[in-house]
Write a protein that binds this DNA or RNA. Sequence first.
DNA 1: GTACAACTTCAAGTTAACTTGAGGTCAAGC
DNA 2: GCTTGACCTCAAGTTAACTTGAAGTTGTAC
Lengths: 144, 144
Amino acid sequence: MKLPDIAEVARRSGVPASTLRFYEEKKLIESAGRHGLRRLYDPAVFERLALIALGRASGFSLEEIAQMFSPDGRVRIDRGMLAAKADELDRTIRRMAAMRDGLRHAAVCRAPSHLECPTFRRLLAAAASGAIRAPQSRTRRGRR
Amino acid sequence: MKLPDIAEVARRSGVPASTLRFYEEKKLIESAGRHGLRRLYDPAVFERLALIALGRASGFSLEEIAQMFSPDGRVRIDRGMLAAKADELDRTIRRMAAMRDGLRHAAVCRAPSHLECPTFRRLLAAAASGAIRAPQSRTRRGRR
DNA sequence: GTACAACTTCAAGTTAACTTGAGGTCAAGC
DNA sequence: GCTTGACCTCAAGTTAACTTGAAGTTGTAC
């Protein structure tokens, strides 16, 4: 059984080869060995990549994700950290839901100008008060 | 009635002076005039800043926000754009809610390892499949 | 009228998460 | 055994949204 090379891992995981090398540099993954210069990966790398994708999707930075792995490569996720992140996500979700409702309303509201719409103004006030914070990064995955 | 200067606007809006200058450079706001070299602002700038905060909180980029303002400075938000953004927010919210639930579960799950927890594995699979995308940028607003 | 805190400009730096490019190596197919 | 395409390394570039720093100007208080 031959171990997958970087192209194979990229193909099956959807993660670009350049990103795989980058992740290795950041100690997020490692290659099982080399065939000449070429990296060969243990199939377990797919699970690892899934874990990384999950972490990213949950708002963890790569650095935080790196800390979830023991030096020996085992996964060791702190449950308190998970709960804290869940709470943070929850707060973000609430804010975004308020935003969504406000936008939705503004989109159909027939006030002559959004600035004259009470609902919109309420949103504005909330945003101005700092009750609302930055959203998600739209790292558009377009393949230019 | 004297117009507020940049420090006053910064103080009352919570937006740093450097950011106000940056926003001006990006044509997001403008100063009403100068007193010597110093910028003076029309009080309407506060509403404008609130609108910018709202846009950012809703996931608009500064560039998108700039497009919401007519060349003459009037607000002209495209209702279709609002609705589209609301939809996008909605999708993001759904993903984040799934994440939150998964994390919450993983935090209390008593499986010996997260990798052995069915719920966690389901999340992993979803993340790996790309069903889930990047989250919010934690631009920590700490005042170092 | 002088000191100086607070403003000004402009360029460069910051951060995260990657991508791109130049120049080099090499395993596999013919 | 030679070609070639896919890999390699390492440095630099990219993007967004700002921040920081250096060097200069000036309104305001005394």
